[in-house]
Simulated assay, not measured.
Amino acid sequence: MRILIWHVHGSWTTAFVQGPHTYLLPVTPDRGPDGLGRARTWDWPQNVTEVPHDRLRESDIDLVVLQRPHEIELAHRWTGRRPGLDVPALYVEHNSPDGSPTHTRHPLADRDDVPIVHVTHFNRLMWDNGRAPTAVVEHGIIDPGPLWTGERERAAVVVNEPVRRGRTTGTDLLPLLAKAAPLDVFGMRTEQLAAHLGMSEQECRARDLPQGELHPQMARCRVYVHPVRWTSLGLSLLEAMFLGMPVVALDTTEVREAVPPGAGVVSNRLDALTDAVRAFLTDREHAAAVGRAAREAALARYGLPRFLDDWEHLLKEVR
C-alpha cells in the first residue's frame, strides 16, 4: 500500500511508518510545514520516501492520511485527486478540541467519506464528530528501553513552548512543583522559562535537546511530572513510563487511563502532587518500584506491535 502522509508530528509519525507499507512524504524546496520530508532527528526506515510536491500527480497513491484541515485542499491541488472521493482517505485527529469540549465541531463533521481516527477515547468523546465515521487507535511507542537511573534528585518535565501555552500546559504550576523538587524542563522554546516564572536556574533548568539525547537525560531524573491541564495524551508521559520513571500527573484528559494504580500518582489535588514528588525524591527504592510498574503498564497498552496491528485492521477496512 502506498500511503501519502505529511510529516506533522514527529514522534507519532515515527511509530506509524514502522508498518509494512510505502509512505510518501511531500517535500518542498524550503522544507516548510507542508513539505518537511523525512525526519532529521528520528531514525525512519527506507520505506519512507520523499516525493517533491510537484511530482505527486505522477505518483501512485492508495490512501491519503490527513492530519490538518488544509491538507484536504492541498492533497487535491498537489495530486489532482479529492480525498475521500477520488482516493480513500483517513483523518488522524491528534488533539483534544481547542475550544469548548461540548460545543466544538470537528472540521470533518459534515462529511461521511473520510473517517476520523482519534488517538484517545477521550478525544473522540469530546469532539462533536457529526456524521463522520470515527475510530480510535491509541498511541504506540518505540521502546527506548528501561533507561531510568534516578541519579539526579530532580523532576523531569517535557513541554513545548511553555511560555506561550501557559495554563494549557500547566506552566503556572511549575513554581509550586519546584518547591517539592528542582525541575529539569525539556522541550522547544523553553529558554526564557525560568525568567518568565521568576525562578532561578537551579529551581528550573530548561533545555531544548536533540531527540537522541532527550530520553537519557530524562531518565537521569528521579521522577517525571506531567502538569498538563488540557491537551491530548502527551507522548512524553508515555515515553517516561517506557523509560521506567515513576510519574506524577494531573488527572485530566486520558491520563488516568494511561497511568493505572501503582504506576504513579494521578490527582488534581496540588498537595497530593507535591507530596508524591517529595516521596519519590526521598525514597529511591520506592521510585524504582513504581517506575518498573509504569514501564510494564506502558508496554502492555502502548507497545508498538499493538499500535501497528490496530492500524492494519483499520487500513483493511478503508481499502
Rank of each mutant, 00 (worst) to 15 (best):
P246K: 12
V248N: 06
M241C: 07
L250C: 05
V248S: 05
L250M: 12
M245F: 08
S236V: 07
F242I: 12
M245I: 04
Y224I: 12
F242Q: 06
Y224S: 13
G234L: 08
Y224D: 11
V223R: 11
L235E: 05
S232E: 10
D251V: 02
A240I: 08
V247D: 02
V225F: 02
S236W: 06
E239S: 11
D251R: 10
V248L: 10
M245Y: 09
C221D: 15
G234I: 00
W230P: 00
G234C: 11
V228W: 00
V225C: 03
L237D: 06
A249G: 11
R222I: 13
Y224W: 15
V223N: 13
L237S: 09
M245W: 05
V247F: 01
R220H: 02
M241H: 06
T231S: 14
D251A: 15
P227Q: 01
S232T: 06
F242R: 07
L250E: 02
L235P: 00
W230Y: 12
M241L: 07
V223L: 15
C221F: 11
E239K: 13
R229V: 06
M241Q: 10
P227F: 00
P227L: 09
E239R: 15
S232F: 05
E239I: 12
L250D: 00
V228Q: 03
L243C: 10
V225G: 00
R220K: 13
L233M: 03
E239N: 13
W230N: 08
P246F: 13
R229I: 02
A240H: 06
L233W: 04
R220E: 03
R229N: 10
L238N: 04
D251Y: 02
V225I: 01
V248D: 01
G244F: 05
G244N: 09
R222T: 15
F242P: 07
L243F: 08
A240G: 10
S232G: 15
M245E: 09
E239V: 14
Y224L: 12
L250G: 01
R220P: 02
V223T: 15
M245N: 04
R220G: 02
L250A: 05
L250V: 04
G244P: 00
H226E: 14
L238A: 06
V247S: 04
A249N: 13
V223D: 13
M241G: 02
T231L: 09
D251Q: 11
G244L: 09
V248R: 07
V223F: 13
E239Q: 15
M241N: 04
C221R: 06
T231V: 09
L235W: 10
R229A: 02
P246D: 13
E239H: 12
S232Q: 08
L250Q: 03
M241V: 02
V223E: 13
G244R: 07
Y224Q: 12
L238Q: 01
V228F: 02
L250N: 02
L235K: 04
R220S: 04
L237A: 08
L250P: 05
V228I: 14
L235V: 11
L235Q: 10
F242C: 10
D251W: 05
V225K: 03
R229Q: 05
R222F: 15
P246L: 09
H226R: 09
D251I: 02
V225E: 01
F242A: 11
L243T: 03
H226W: 06
R222Y: 14
Y224A: 15
G244M: 07
L233C: 03
H226G: 07
G234W: 00
A240S: 14
V248I: 08
H226Q: 15
A249T: 12
G234S: 15
A249M: 12
T231H: 11
